[in-house]
């Protein structure tokens, strides 16, 4: 395992706190940058996220060129509040209307590629209570400063060392530590160096994001890492310590569903890569049980079709909008 990757490709957001330098790099390279916030009923946090990002990274330092909210039919005031603070708000269901619409974070991220104008797309979850502009500039830093890095992923809570000779856990959540890290350790040990593979904040160049498929739901973070590593190797990936992140906690049942989706995505990937031969089809239902009365148990199945969107570059509307000419570009 190349442990040097940890040393060379791991950063702290404060490494990139000189925003004037980042803006100069962006301008020198002739790049444009889009921030995308996928939403579903986030009225408690969306206003603050758009406000702070716009003030600090558009008005004061022109690092971002646009802030997009891709919404999954929120029933609260998410879209109204986001628009009031200057975000471009889109309903996911109205993007690429020729295609069947699905509901899920991955779906919104994928459709953002079609809507966004930027050469770099920054994805940030919309439920972060302690949002700060470091969440965006921290991820952009490695992409702008190092030509070989094409994808940057967040991690949190100063994981490795807490002081001299003191070690702490990596700060990953339960699903990371109980599901993803064991699976990575079994099949792709070098991916264990990505400390929080499920973190919802990452940024990448369009030139790679448009060439990978997107699961429509929770599996999108897992598939993104596996696909980018497989096609371009670990050296294009960086990870950035964004310190503390406060967000909604999910209960164990919800995490169980999330784990199911992630495992399914993972197993499909490893089979496709020829690493594992799965002899019978994987099932589509996660079955959990609920207590009913004193002694009864009621199954509570959760259907996951495991749908994936194809690489965006294969979508005719996208090829037309972004004038993708080279047939080779479409080869995935």
């Amino acid at each position: 395992m190349k442990s040097s990757w940890l040393d060379t490709n791991t950063f702290h957001y404060s490494d990139f706190a000189d925003l004037e330098e980042l803006v100069a790099l962006k301008e020198r390279k002739g790049l444009s940058i889009s921030l995308c916030l996928p939403t579903l009923n986030e009225e408690q946090t969306i206003g603050k996220e758009v406000l702070i990002m716009r003030s600090e990274l558009m008005t004061r330092y022109p690092l971002l060129d646009e802030i997009l909210v891709i919404d999954s039919d929120s029933t609260d005031r998410t879209r109204e509040i986001a628009a009031a603070f200057g975000a471009k708000v889109h309903l996911a269901s109205e993007i690429l209307p020729r295609m069947e619409s699905f509901r899920g974070k991955g779906e919104n991220l994928w459709k953002a590629l079609y809507i966004a104008q930027g050469d770099i797309i920054v994805y940030i979850d919309a439920d972060i209570k302690n949002i700060h502009h470091r969440f965006a500039f921290g991820l952009l830093g490695p992409l702008l400063r190092t030509d070989t890095i094409k994808y940057a992923k967040a991690f949190y809570d100063r994981p490795i060392a807490a002081g001299k000779n003191k070690l702490r856990p990596t700060g990953g959540g339960r699903v990371t530590e109980l599901v993803i890290r064991p699976m990575f350790s079994l099949f792709f040990p070098e991916l264990t160096m990505i400390l929080q593979p499920l973190s919802g904040e990452y940024a990448g160049y369009r030139e790679i994001l448009e060439k990978i498929p997107f699961p429509i739901g929770y599996g999108v973070e897992t598939s993104m890492i596996l696909d980018i590593r497989e096609r371009w190797g670990m050296d294009v990936i960086a990870q950035v310590d964004l310190e503390k992140r406060v967000h909604r906690n999910q209960d164990t049942k919800a995490l169980g569903k999330m784990s199911f989706v992630i495992l399914k995505t993972f197993l499909n990937r490893v089979e496709r890569m020829g690493v594992l031969d799965i002899r019978s089809p994987l099932h589509d239902e996660m079955i959990q049980y609920q207590l009913e009365g004193d002694r009864g148990f009621r199954p509570d199945p959760f259907l996951v079709r495991g749908l994936e969107r194809p690489p965006m570059i294969q979508v005719p509307e996208y090829r037309s909008k972004f004038k993708v000419q080279d047939a080779q570009e479409a080869m995935v």
């Binding site: 946090t45 206003g47 005031r77 109204e80 509040i81 302690n130």
Partner: peptide, 9 residues
Amino acid sequence: EEVHYTVGK
């Protein structure tokens, strides 16, 4: 503890 504000319209 750190507090969290809500920004409305």
